[in-house]
Design a binder for these strands. Structure first.
Length: 320
DNA sequence: AATAATAGCCGCCAGC
DNA sequence: TTGCTGGCGGCTATTA
């Protein structure tokens, strides 16, 4: 009997995540007979359903079908403030009660949280929504770092958009083993199966507000001098602040500690150099302030899961 | 892969 | 009082 994967559809859902889930679980793969998923899209709200970008979707099933699903994949919910209607929340609760595995992509974790399915669990979501999530659900332990996270109660949450693909592959892996998941990943031409523990890409989250603070000029200077020996003492002196105050002010401005922020920037620069130049890894490490190639390698694998060589190869494949 | 040295970080608290 | 500062001590993370 097929393993039923239900995808609830509502007004303003994420079309990308909806389609990605359909593609992964719905595509017929005759050469992988053991992979026997039956996808059922389920209408949660009445009327003409459009994705956040206006695509019209026409689900086959209804909200009542959720309870019979083996797995439910909840694509991005339209709002971090709007509480979904009770019928949807009840359906999620009933399905969970009945033993369905429930997975959320990106802001899809919000309906799960509203339904109480994440109470006293550890969950994740897109890093941009982390604050909104924590404010509304203080009793849920939110970890904004991983790509996806299996809670203890048969519920899984994941970070933004593409992390949903990693999540879905992880589900396949749980159902049919790593080899099958890898095979599917290869067919979808997804470069690699990334582990859930891999960090969400963080560079973007740290700068936007920083330049409007009193440390703005210093932060700009740091970005232009990543190759220098940037110790806390030197930076504090340059800012005419004590060590202690510098660290505090820096965190207030960027949200992360100086060292974490600088390493993030250095790695980002290193990635650019790996992509666009033929410099040796050691040279890139030196130039970006990461020091040694070993160190560069460590940070790169932590964040992307790829070694420098593989990282280069992956980008060459796209842009020779 | 394990280790030792070093630097970063943070709670605490007194002082302005 | 409140709020920010910054020195100290020591634990933790990072690096070589």
């Amino acid at each position: 009997m097929s393993h039923v994967v239900a995808i609830p559809a509502y007004q303003g859902l994420s079309g990308y995540e909806y389609a990605m889930t359909l593609e992964l679980f719905g595509l017929d793969r005759p050469t992988l007979p053991e992979v026997d998923y039956a996808v059922l899209t389920c209408r949660v709200e009445a009327g003409l359903l459009r994705t956040s970008h206006g695509l019209i979707v026409e689900p086959e099933g209804t909200i009542d079908d959720l309870v019979n699903a083996d797995t439910i994949i909840v694509p991005g919910w339209r709002s971090v403030t709007e509480v979904p209607g009770d019928p949807f929340l009840d359906a999620l609760r009933n399905a969970h009660e009945a033993g369905s595995r429930i997975a959320a992509i990106c802001s899809g974790s919000f309906p799960l949280a509203h339904a109480g399915l994440l109470d006293d669990q550890t969950a994740t979501t897109h890093w941009m929504y982390a604050d909104a999530f924590r404010r509304q659900f203080p009793h849920i332990d939110l970890d904004p770092n991983p790509l996806y996270l299996f809670a203890e109660n048969n519920v899984v949450t994941s970070a933004g958009s593409s992390a949903g693909l990693d999540l879905c592959l992880a589900l396949v892996s749980a159902d049919h083993g790593v080899a099958t998941a890898t095979e599917i990943a290869n067919r979808m031409v997804v470069a690699h199966h990334r582990p859930g523990t891999q960090a969400q890409f963080t560079s973007a989250r740290v700068t936007p507000f920083a330049e409007h603070t009193d440390l703005g000029p210093l932060i700009a200077w740091i970005e232009n001098n990543l190759g220098d020996d940037l110790t806390i003492d030197r930076l504090a002196r340059r800012a005419h602040l004590s060590r202690r105050t510098f660290i505090r002010r820096f965190q207030a401005a960027t949200g992360v500690s100086p060292h974490a922020w600088i390493t993030d920037k250095r790695l980002y620069r290193a990635r650019q150099l790996l992509e666009t130049t033929a410099l040796t890894v050691s040279a890139i490490a030196r130039r970006t302030g990461l020091g040694t190639s070993t160190n560069l390698r460590k940070h790169l694998t932590n964040t992307t899961g790829l070694t420098p060589t593989h990282y280069r190869a992956a980008h060459r494949a796209i842009a020779p």
